[in-house]
Design a protein around this nucleic acid. Structure first.
Lengths: 235, 235
DNA sequence: CGAGCTGTTGAGGCTTCTCAAAGAAAGTGG
DNA sequence: CCACTTTCTTTGAGAAGCCTCAACAGCTCG
């Protein structure tokens, strides 16, 4: 068996914080039934298995979606950012839990209403397609990449406009970059299908090789972006 | 390592089995711009990187989508069946290759046209949401399950109405079932993020434990479905 | 300043992979 | 219909990678 720290649903259970939140501007915007809701970092928006009454739009901030196995193994299946939608369901219940990574404003769209609007359908469609392509890429990472490649791929996701097909190539002069991690090591591990120790070891090894400097725990300075990119498995 | 080979596309406008499937958002309007093509087993429908001119609908049969790394590592990211759609793209090129697993009839929908129809958008979204939920589940499998759990999960996918949330439970009397594999060991391995040897070893181990009998290479008799289900990680 | 987290490092073990070879099954041509 | 080739599958032995367990270090906050 693989995998490490086990989560229990209890660990993540702090809905009261979210509920107690105040100052939510209720904006009648789209089809009439939307609310904006502010969350601080690491708050749960919805739980796997909850009956789904809404679709959520990330107005600002970022969110991770994850699933749990009964024994507590966790897999973070998606990382989403501003403009992304989540909470779609085929059968009326959410298949994932959703948790903020940073302070975020989440717009709640009434699920029944939204289906009526054609423009919104098209927007849903665009968003789902983009997310689906990311899932395909993530499946490749989880199924076929080494720990080193996984962490490298993760870092590259955090460097804007670099990596992948539409990479703009190294900047003139210095090709360094500082990424800010909004996830803990545990969350990164659960995203990459690794253990926390392995993530830590890979980062230490990168440090040893002079590829990165860890300035603060959540700040990683990449000496040359291209060097990390070459470790992602795509070169 | 890759099995990608191009075959000649045979034109064949055979009347459709799947047509009765649902209310036909797919059938009438854009009749000017759809074609049905017949493929035999293990033919490639489109390649990763191809410019995407169409969306495909599986009229009958089944299809796998896969991605390759430059060094030849392959990940099968989705398995699709009758009624499923694929070939959606965010940037104009296919992010996956698609290959039939069994003889299949594939309907080609002109990508430009389809965007106009609201009914079709809704159908696309339904399909994407279902596929997205499957991707989430697959990410869990790839990131967190052991080889034994992966193969068990795979077998359960092939037993109708069993496993997952909407499992109907064991039948009265015998709880056995024979599944027909439409994938080779290599394809199964690439789907499950394992090697062909590991898949083979797990199946042999299941045989040794009396959980299954392999009647032909592509036919597996499950002695008691519940026993396999208990090995999927969900119990 | 100590408690409580989060992250790092080490030693050892287990699962899965790699490499190699042999055994079935399926396709081919005489 | 049978030898032959090719492809697919199974099995074994050994290695590698990642995980588990355990202890320690560093940061944060009262």
């Amino acid at each position: 068996m693989t995998h490490a720290r086990r989560f229990t649903v209890i660990d993540n259970d702090r809905p009261s914080v979210a509920m107690a939140r105040t100052g939510d501007a209720t904006q009648p915007n789209h089809a009439g039934r939307t609310h904006d809701h502010s969350y601080s970092a690491h708050e749960t928006i919805c739980f796997e298995g909850d009956s789904a009454k809404s679709i959520y739009e990330i107005h600002s901030g970022s969110v991770m979606l994850y699933k749990l196995l009964p024994d507590g193994r966790r897999q973070v299946v998606e990382m989403l950012g501003t403009g992304d939608l989540f909470g779609f369901t085929a059968d009326g219940t959410h298949d994932c839990s959703a948790e903020t990574l940073v302070p975020s404003v989440i717009r709640t769209l009434d699920a029944g209403r939204t289906a009526e609007s054609g423009a919104m359908q098209a927007e849903f469609n665009r968003c789902l397609i983009r997310q689906m392509e990311q899932m395909h890429e993530h499946a490749m990472l989880l199924g076929r990449k080494s720990a080193f490649e996984r962490v490298s791929s993760y870092l590259m996701k955090l460097v804007p406009e670099r990596g992948g097909a539409k990479c703009v190539g190294p900047r003139e002069g210095a090709d360094d970059w500082e990424v800010v991690l909004s996830m803990t090591r545990q969350e990164i591990a659960d995203f990459l299908g690794l253990t926390i120790e392995t993530v830590s070891r890979v980062l230490s090894e990168m440090k040893r090789r002079g590829l990165i400097r860890i300035t603060k725990q959540d700040r990683i300075h990449i000496r040359r972006v291209c060097d990390i990119c070459k470790q992602t498995g795509y070169h």
